[in-house]
């Protein structure tokens, strides 16, 4: 093993100062990073910045208008958060369905975002919940809407000297779902995922936000399907048509996990199942 010494900040100011060296790699839960390092036996490991003890990054704060999730919050903590269970069920469902107990106890939401995988399970929920990311460096901070954060598979606008320091979602009631499909229920990366946030005005859809995971170079919004659903009263015919439209919005590829043709079809199936469950549960 290429074990190296690590940088071990105990507060955010120290962490940002250490990250000013752009060759330093930040480690949150490490559940993706250590898998990648495991495979590079012949190359030296980079200098690792351990975020474990930076308490500022590991909490949820709630105001009247916003819920701010610290990037070091683990999937297990998100799954069990009372406020998120009430206000962000899509995110809770996604966190609860990823990996295994062992992985969820370590994997963090900030790491899931920074990794930039189009199959990252917390990302579609954050799209439909309109999350804003706070990115900080030793020089200051900026905010970026989550949809502007990703530029390609594993590629983001995060600069080498920056850390994600907060994930902010509006504090309001949300209605919708998250669904995923993978080779098996545990410990499998999503082949397809769909997150929906829907606002109803009496029996009609006032607005629907739909995000699709693992079917394009980044997570994408299904804007044509959203537009189609606006103002409609949801019934089986409308659901079937929405499921047909959404298939054409997906731009999947064939890879080791699945085939493009299957993914397209399954995007429709997941949207259909989700919309049916939302409408039958009121």
């Amino acid at each position: 093993m290429n074990a190296v010494e690590t940088l071990n900040p105990t507060n955010l100011a120290q962490a940002l100062k250490a990250k000013a060296n752009k060759n330093v790699v930040a480690v949150a839960g490490g559940t993706d990073l250590l898998v990648r390092l495991h495979d590079r036996i012949t190359q030296p490991w980079p200098k690792l910045l351990i975020l474990e003890n930076v308490k500022e990054l590991h909490k949820i704060t709630v105001t009247k208008t916003a819920i701010t999730i610290g990037p070091s919050m683990t999937f297990s903590e998100i799954e069990n958060s009372a406020i998120l269970r009430k206000k962000a069920l899509q995110l809770v469902t996604a966190a609860a369905s990823a990996g295994s107990v062992q992985i969820r106890n370590r994997a963090t939401i900030g790491g899931n975002i920074a990794n930039g995988s189009p199959a990252g399970d917390t990302i579609p929920p954050l799209y439909v919940l309109e999350a804003i990311l706070e990115l900080s460096s030793a020089k200051g901070k900026r905010t970026v809407p989550i949809e502007k954060f990703f530029t390609g598979p594993g590629k983001t606008v995060l600069k080498p000297t920056e850390l994600i320091t907060a994930i902010k979602i509006p504090n309001r009631s949300n209605h919708g779902f998250f669904m995923r499909l993978a080779t098996r229920k545990a410990l499998a990366i999503s082949k397809v995922s769909v997150a929906v946030n829907i606002i109803m005005n009496k029996s009609k859809v006032e607005s629907a936000k739909i995000a699709l995971g693992a079917v394009a170079p980044t997570v994408i919004r299904a804007t044509l399907t959203e537009e189609y659903l606006r103002g409609k009263e949801i019934n089986q015919a409308i659901i079937d048509e929405a499921a047909r439209i959404v298939q054409d919005e997906a731009r999947p590829i064939d890879d080791i996990r699945s085939l493009a043709i299957y993914r397209k079809e399954m995007v429709g199936v997941l949207l259909k199942r989700g919309l049916e469950s939302v409408t039958t549960n009121g």
Partner: peptide, 10 residues
């Protein structure tokens, strides 16, 4: 947790 995915410093 998986001890293969945790570092001593953590």
């Amino acid at each position: 947790v998986c001890s293969c995915l945790i570092l001593a410093a953590q």
